[in-house]
Deep mutational scan, measured.
Amino acid sequence: VGDQVLEIVPSNEEQIKNLLQLEAQEHLQLDFWKSPTTPGETAHVRVPFVNVQAVKVFLESQGIAYSIMIED
């Protein structure tokens, strides 16, 4: 199991704000291929294997929908 690319769908401005804060966490080494800008629009982010669980827990705790787009 390696890195994953998640497709994330924020449903409101609050969730977009939370994702932008997540993007700013440099220690997570997230690679946003497509940043969140509009509710209902997908964002794509590559998550290093060591941080996959932490990111998924965060998304679930914020009620942000996501799916695994690419499993490496």
Rank of each mutant, 00 (worst) to 15 (best):
V9Y: 15
A24F: 08
G40E: 03
A54W: 13
E13K: 08
R46M: 06
G40N: 06
S61K: 11
D3K: 06
S67Q: 09
P48T: 04
T42G: 05
L6R: 00
Y66T: 01
V1M: 10
L30W: 03
P48K: 07
I16A: 03
F58R: 02
Q15C: 02
A43R: 03
V5M: 11
E23V: 15
D31L: 09
Q4D: 03
R46H: 13
Q15A: 04
L22R: 02
E14W: 07
L19T: 01
I70M: 09
M69G: 04
I16Q: 02
E26G: 15
V47T: 02
V5D: 04
E71Y: 10
F32H: 02
P48L: 04
E71N: 12
K34S: 07
A65L: 09
P39A: 06
E7N: 07
M69P: 04
V47W: 01
V50K: 12
F49P: 04
P39I: 09
N51W: 13
E71V: 06
I64R: 00
S11I: 14
S67P: 01
E14I: 08
T38Y: 09
L19M: 04
K56S: 04
H27R: 05
H44A: 07
K17N: 09
N18I: 15
I70V: 11
L22H: 03
T37C: 06
G63L: 06
L19K: 00
V57R: 13
Q53L: 10
P10D: 01
V55L: 10
Q4S: 07
P36F: 04
P48A: 06
N18E: 11
R46P: 01
G40F: 08
E23F: 14
Q25E: 08
I68V: 12
V9R: 12
N51S: 11
I64Q: 00
T37L: 12
P39E: 03
I68Q: 05
S61H: 08
E41F: 06
Q53K: 10
R46N: 05
I68M: 06
Q53P: 10
A43Q: 04
S11T: 12
S11K: 11
V5W: 15
I68C: 05
G2S: 08
P10I: 07
K17T: 11
F58E: 03
L28V: 04
V1A: 13
K34A: 07
Q21P: 01
V57K: 10
D72L: 13
V45A: 05
K56C: 10
K56H: 05
V50G: 10
Q15M: 04
V1P: 12
N51D: 05
Q21S: 10
D3N: 09
I8P: 01
L30M: 05
Q25A: 11
Q62A: 13
A65C: 09
H27Y: 11
A43G: 04
N18M: 14
V55G: 00
E60L: 04
D3T: 11
R46E: 03
P39V: 11
Q25L: 11
L30Y: 02
W33R: 09
K56E: 04
M69S: 05
L28T: 03
V52C: 05
Q21E: 12
G63S: 06
I8E: 00
V52Q: 05
A43K: 02
L22I: 05
G2M: 11
A65E: 10
G40H: 06
L19Q: 00
S67I: 12
W33C: 15
G63H: 06
V9D: 03
G2V: 09
I16H: 03
E13W: 15
I8N: 00
P10N: 01
T42M: 06
S67V: 08
A54G: 04
N51I: 06
G63D: 07
I16N: 01
V52P: 00
A54Y: 15
E41Q: 08
G2R: 04
T42K: 11
L59F: 03
V5I: 13
V1G: 13
N12Q: 02
S11M: 14
S61M: 11
S61L: 12
S67F: 08
W33A: 09
V45G: 01
I16V: 10
D31V: 15
P36C: 04
K34F: 06
G40R: 04
L28M: 08
P39L: 06
V52N: 03
V45C: 06
G63W: 03
T37H: 06
E41G: 05
T38S: 08
L28S: 03
A24K: 11
I16F: 07
E41A: 09
P10C: 12
S61E: 11
